[in-house]
Design a protein around this nucleic acid. Structure first.
Lengths: 157, 157
DNA sequence: CTACTTGCAAATGCTTTGCAGGAGA
DNA sequence: TCTCCTGCAAAGCATTTGCAAGTAG
């Protein structure tokens, strides 16, 4: 691990790309144009994207390459693959790059939005993790989704 | 194990099957032997099972039927399908039948265990849900997974 | 020049579906 | 008897991989 210190996820600029390049380099991988485009796409979306959305937004990157590159990005700790409510995987920037957050999942249309949790909730989560450790399970992180209906679907019916 | 009149999911016995039968009947579906076996399998497991595990445990129920029946059980609100960490769906009894709980997911071997959260955590979650409502999103439930390494994998690796 | 990358197409693996026979109410 | 259920086999999709050519260092 090269960089140490603070895990501030505030990198609106080239910092993100620097980090990405470094992490890829650690795996003898290059930060190619395609990969940069994928990272930028995920950053701009600010919410998990399905493969279909990614291919549509980037245009030019064939699906197989997108899959392959996203797999590499996940391995490098730059991206994360989430299991979708349906059976479509969703991708987003890794937690330490995008900031820790949770998701609002619309059970009606499948849309996913980001949500930053209150400090109190995070504290309670940490406490629960400690509790789980008592059973021999070492908790390294958590994933929290709120299910419900988004504004649009509520209006629609 | 009182028989309180709350939302306590305390149905260790035939109550479960009664409920299942009723919910299926509401959809003009029957509570057949296969479906009963599936329900019992899920109850006994007390943790989400993959399709492979279900087929192995039941033995006799062909995979296609298992899929078909589990789909029906999900539609009837008797079972729930969870998106697995890998790409294998996992099934478990619906929340109101098995009780509200969360999951410990081993990132190493993919095993999933149930975990009942502390009251404080649930309270914090409810509060966060209320907060989300401010943005027009109606929260109906939540899903919380803790990622980490199970005891076995910690020993092994 | 030597890896790592890319794109296409074919393959894989989980899941769904068509169909004909069987069973429950 | 009518409708739902079961099993098998074939079909569907999202995702992965083999291979030959392209490109970064």
């Amino acid at each position: 691990m090269t960089s140490g210190a603070g895990d501030e996820p505030d990198l609106g600029n080239g910092r993100l790309h620097e980090t990405a390049a470094a992490r890829l380099a650690a795996l003898d991988q290059r930060y190619t144009h395609s990969r940069r485009v994928l990272v930028e796409t995920m950053q701009e979306a600010a919410r998990p994207l399905t493969m279909a959305e990614i291919v549509r937004r980037t245009d030019r990157i064939p699906q197989s390459s997108a899959y392959r590159n996203l797999t590499v990005l996940c391995a490098a700790g730059i991206a994360t693959r989430l299991p979708g409510a349906d059976d479509q995987g969703r991708f987003e920037l890794a937690e330490d790059l995008a900031g820790h957050h949770h998701h609002l999942v619309c059970v009606s249309c499948g849309a996913v939005a980001d949500l930053v949790a209150a400090a109190r909730l995070e504290r309670a989560l940490r406490e629960a993790a400690r509790q789980a450790a008592d059973s021999g399970f070492e908790v390294t992180g958590h994933r929290l989704d709120f299910d419900g209906r988004c504004g649009e679907c509520r209006d629609a019916g």
